[in-house]
Simulated assay, not measured.
Amino acid sequence: MIVQERALRFRCQDEWLYGILHQPQQLVARGVLIVVGGPQYRAGSHRQFVLLARYLAERGIPVMRFDYRGMGDSDGTIRSFEHVGEDLTGAVDLFFEECPFLKDIVIWGLCDAASAALFYAHQDQRVSGLVLLNPWVRTEQGIAKAYLKHYYLQRLFKLEFWKKLLGGKFNPVASIRSLCEFGKSSLYMEPAAAEDDSSSSCNLMASLPERMLDGLKHFQGKVLIITSGSDLTAREFLDLIHSSADWQKTTEAKQVEFFHIENANHTFSTCEWRNQVAEQTGIRVLSW
């Protein structure tokens, strides 16, 4: 299929933002907005976003990817994922302006871009679906538990660990000290915010997981969550769901779909993992 790729720019406040539109010749009426996560720009790690956009566009799905203010080619000062709502609004507005045949869009986000998508999606009726990869729910307690469960304890069952210990290449005192610190952190309970259904998901008084859950509760569209088996960010997110009755109840009520790639790393860096992500994304976008 013939796909046209062209550069776009749009204003957010008084600053210029830049992106790329992938527009196939034969179009479907649902597009995908790829949202950048972490300190990177619209190409993505190992050109992941470029390859994903081209995969989807070859199947008739228009795709837009762009840089937030302060990232990549865009103007302005760098900002966190918690303060990109205006950037997203501007990008969605331009996407519909450039592709007037669109009826709705799906937002695709990795790591803290998944968090930003959950904050934003329920506020924009043009967003019909979310594809969230290894969502960022980082808290001091959560990462401490993830390290204890998925790193320190697992090391005891690995031959390499015992070879280092018996060979004098392992410092048990430093490791025990680190383990104790993580243990204390995992027992620390962050103060919970008072429940208020009318509160915004951007209420910074609530913890990050609480704000993300609030966004999910208010979103009326479809959701696919893709997780990696070899990634602490994904482990922390899955541990949160498994330990929280509220998260479990909400994901079940919303009929959230899950897809897990057992050996994948955080950015799905191999061709096999990347292709699985692209295939699962394309299936959902075309079937939702």
Rank of each mutant, 00 (worst) to 15 (best):
K222R: 13
K158V: 09
I283L: 09
T267H: 04
E279V: 13
L148K: 12
T267G: 00
E272H: 14
N265C: 09
E279A: 15
Q154G: 11
G229A: 10
K169E: 13
S201A: 15
G183R: 07
C180K: 13
L213D: 01
V277H: 03
T267C: 08
L153F: 15
K158D: 14
H266T: 01
L238K: 10
R235A: 13
L187G: 09
E262W: 07
C271F: 10
D197V: 10
N171V: 02
I241E: 00
D239V: 08
G221K: 02
Q248M: 08
L213P: 01
D239T: 12
G282W: 06
N203V: 06
A278S: 14
L213C: 05
S244H: 05
L159R: 14
E210D: 14
I241M: 01
H242V: 03
K164N: 12
D196N: 15
A174L: 11
N263L: 09
L213T: 05
G229V: 04
P209S: 06
E252F: 03
H266S: 04
S198C: 05
A264H: 02
Q280E: 12
F161Y: 15
K158R: 15
C202Q: 15
M189W: 14
R284G: 00
A234P: 04
K169S: 09
Y147E: 12
L216R: 01
A174Y: 05
N203R: 10
W273D: 14
L165C: 06
K249A: 15
F237P: 01
G282M: 06
P209R: 05
L208C: 07
A245T: 11
R274L: 08
